[in-house]
Design a protein around this nucleic acid. Structure first.
Length: 564
RNA sequence: CGGGGAUUGGCGCAAUUGGCUAGCGCGCACGGUUUGGGACCGUGAGGUUGCAGGUUCGAAUCCUGUAUCCCCGACCA
């Protein structure tokens, strides 16, 4: 490719809106352009990288036995309703209607349509397992797109789905994908660590996210030097008893000034640490159910963990003051018992005797409140947010560290989450109908691309791994006013093309040497060749790797030997 | 969706106690001098100041509304 003909230019300046390094560099290098928030054009250079990533993923995914196909982008809303997943994705789904006013959603993920497809093919146990995948554009109306390609509203995703007789059969495929994802990450030169995660809107009970540690990451994972690592949406920690040796005292209602509302107020009023207080946090499910999460005062509620323990039907939202009024209470006055709501208690309630709080009115409060005696919750489980320095649940000794990471891929053991409500079955050995046991596996291509750029760059630009670089070789020619040099460069370019070298040829007439070098560094192609007066008089062409500092001269007729 | 900020040629910015023909740099086009790390000189093109309405002799500047974008929090490949 001749640079002079390449559609898309580099630029020296970049919008101040670009904060992430990958966003800046991809814009500057002419890889991407933004159309609107979270919607990006891949320019020819960006598309080249994207396609290389796509082909790497395709090759590795095929090794799991998966077959590629493609389903439509628009999914009938009714079909999603049968899976009872239409509400799970909630406001992230984009809806469109056709001329008959039929409603469709722009596919945010493919489980429902894939399952419907499997139904049409009249599957029996002999056909299982089934392992199918596609590359397709996904639409998610994210509330906040950010970081350039790191989180967008429209993106190319490799999504794979597998169908099994049972969980044991799924695990075989699941583990193959785990291996495939590790291999993909390795080829892309990404240090992606499988991390236990929350399954979120996709559903299911076991899932692994492949996390790449970087400051630009939007996820936080808790890790321990013993090897334990988990998304904070899932991470647990050791809960030490606080004062269980203390005798349980009779509960009392005491008077308390009206201004004591928040945890800080309580600490100030009673002069005791936050951990001796009860904290109530009120949430609302999409069906309007009010959930009161009860937790030890020094801990916070993790919404994902709460949603899982409670079995939420959709996104949990914060309760409004209006909701509290309906319960007959107000902010700061919520009781640990007695309200018409579902109480979900954290395990930390069992670590303290004689809690302060639990009941609060205008000028009274309760003290010596004990879980089990004075109140219990309908549902109890681990809903606490892990914090930096908490003790690792695995080795039970060391402190957890919290680090930022990008979710590069995600594999889900989703079981019957979709096949159950949709009632989609196969004929088993004994002639009975059984529901499919499912898995699903996703990688966002654009995010992978941005993650590579985010982790492979220096002060001058991107340093692409050879596996995904838009071109293998960047050929620069200087001193173009000299016809002899020009013709040597043209000859070399043609020679490289003839030898099937994937080469970008900077043949620009007016550009200065500095400009060409700067652009080459910015674009980050692994090998740079320079043909110039200096190189020719030194006996050939100069070769330098993007990541190295040393350049050397190679005779022109030996160049292809150095490129293999 | 809550809180904060922004919107002026392709890009980065300036000009607001309301006042001249909206200015600068980059980039772009043309001519010339250059040619190993984003060179220089000259000439030139390019803007109904996000949009709609209002106040005023006069609006980029003030008021009202609205759209879009970014950042910080609650969500995901």
């Amino acid at each position: 490719m001749r640079y002079s003909k390449l559609f898309g230019k580099t630029s020296k300046t970049v919008t101040k809106d670009a904060v992430a390094v990958s966003h800046k560099l991809l814009l500057q290098g002419g890889f991407i352009r933004m159309l609107s928030a979270g919607r990006f054009t891949l320019l020819p250079l960006g598309l080249k990288v994207s396609q290389k990533i796509e082909n790497i993923i395709r090759a590795e995914v095929e090794k799991t036995g998966a077959q590629e196909l493609i389903i439509p982008t628009l999914h009938p809303l009714d079909l999603w309703a049968t899976a009872k997943r239409d509400k799970k994705f909630g406001s992230a789904t984009m809806k469109v209607t056709d001329r008959n006013n039929s409603e469709f959603i722009l596919g945010p993920t493919g489980e429902v349509v894939m399952l419907d497809l499997v139904r049409q093919l009249n599957i029996t146990y002999k056909d299982l397992p089934i392992n199918i995948y596609q590359f397709s554009q996904k639409f998610r109306d994210e509330t906040r797109a950010t970081g350039g390609l790191l989180r967008v509203k429209e993106f190319l995703m490799k999504d794979a789905y597998s169908f099994h007789v049972d969980e044991a059969d799924l695990m075989v495929t699941f583990n193959r994908y785990k291996t495939a994802y590790k291999n993909i990450a390795k080829i892309l030169d990404l240090n992606a660590i499988p991390v236990e995660a929350d399954s979120g809107a996709i559903g299911g009970n076991l899932s692994y996210e492949f996390m790449v540690e970087t400051e630009a990451g939007e996820d936080t994972v808790a890790k321990c030097s013993c090897g334990y690592i988990a998304n904070t949406e899932k991470a647990t920690f050791v809960l030490d008893p606080i004062n269980l040796s203390e005798n349980i005292k009779p509960m009392e209602i005491v008077s308390q000034p009206e201004w004591v509302l928040s945890m800080e107020d309580n600490v100030k009023h009673y002069g005791k640490d936050k951990k001796y207080f009860l904290k109530n946090v009120v949430y609302k499910d999409i069906d309007g159910t009010i959930i009161i999460a009860v937790i030890r005062g020094d801990l916070s509620v993790n919404k994902s963990k709460l949603a899982r323990v409670y079995g939420a039907k959709g996104d949990l939202g914060p309760a409004t003051d209006e909701d509290l009024t309906k319960l007959g209470t107000r902010p700061g006055w919520v009781h640990c018992w007695g309200h018409d709501a579902v109480y979900v208690g954290d395990l930390s309630l069992k670590t303290v005797h004689n809690f302060i709080g639990g009941q609060k009115e205008k000028d009274t409060d309760s003290v010596n409140v004990n879980h089990g005696r004075d109140f219990t919750c309908q549902i109890e489980g681990d809903i606490a947010q892990v914090e930096e320095g908490f003790i690792c649940p695995s080795c039970k000794k060391q402190q957890l560290r919290l680090v930022k990471a990008i979710e590069f891929g995600h594999i889900f053991n989703i079981g019957y989450v979709y096949s159950d409500p949709m009632n989609i079955t196969f004929v088993d050995k004994d002639g009975s109908l059984k529901k499919f046991y499912m898995g699903s596996y996703g990688i966002g291509i654009g995010r992978a691309l941005a993650t590579i750029a985010e982790t492979h760059n220096d002060a001058k630009g991107i340093v692409w791994p050879a596996s995904v670089a838009p071109y293998a070789v960047h050929l620069l020619v200087l001193d173009l006013q000299d016809e002899a040099i020009k013709s040597e460069a043209e000859k070399l370019y043609q020679h490289l093309l003839d030898n099937k070298v994937d080469v970008l040829y900077d043949d620009r007439l007016e550009s200065t040497a500095g400009e060409k070098f700067a652009d080459a560094d910015l674009l980050g192609i692994p090998i740079r060749l320079v043909v110039s007066k200096r190189s020719l008089s030194a006996g050939g062409v100069e070769i330098k790797s993007r990541s190295g500092t040393e350049a050397k001269i190679i005779p022109l007729d030996q160049i292809t030997d150095h490129l293999s």
